[in-house]
């Protein structure tokens, strides 16, 4: 349904980096994410907004803090729809072939 938003959210190195940061440590504040990124607070806020619209991150209030969490559910849906169905069988075969050829070269 919202594959477009997910792909758009992922189509930027800074946003992918933010996701990596959250993957390393889930549930960070804006301040913590800004420290980890060499970027202005305002740009980080904008990127986080796009990620949240695409539902690849979600936020939770804990007292006065707003924590950001990675949400892998839409990523899994994209994987299920756009990767898994193509990769089964054929990709495994290609992978085996590559391994076999590279082994023979040694």
């Amino acid at each position: 349904m919202d594959d477009d938003k997910v792909f758009k959210a992922l189509a930027d190195p800074n946003r992918r980096q933010l996701l990596d940061r959250l993957c390393e440590r889930n549930g960070q504040t804006l301040g913590q994410l800004c420290e980890a990124m060499d970027m202005k607070r305002q740009s980080v806020t904008q990127h986080l907004g796009l990620l949240e619209q695409a539902n690849v991150i979600s936020t939770q209030r804990r007292g006065r803090e707003k924590l950001h969490f990675i949400n892998p559910v839409p990523l899994y849906e994209v994987y299920e729809r756009w990767i898994r169905k193509f990769e089964e069988g054929r990709l495994a075969l290609l992978h085996d072939l590559k391994q076999e050829l590279e082994r023979n070269e040694k």
């Binding site: 349904m1 919202d2 889930n26 549930g27 539902n55 979600s58 939770q60 969490f69 949400n71 892998p72 559910v73 839409p74």
Partner: peptide, 11 residues
């Protein structure tokens, strides 16, 4: 201390 949040929108 570890926590995860998962969100999905369902029609």
């Amino acid at each position: 201390s570890a926590s995860f949040v998962y969100v999905t929108f369902i029609r």
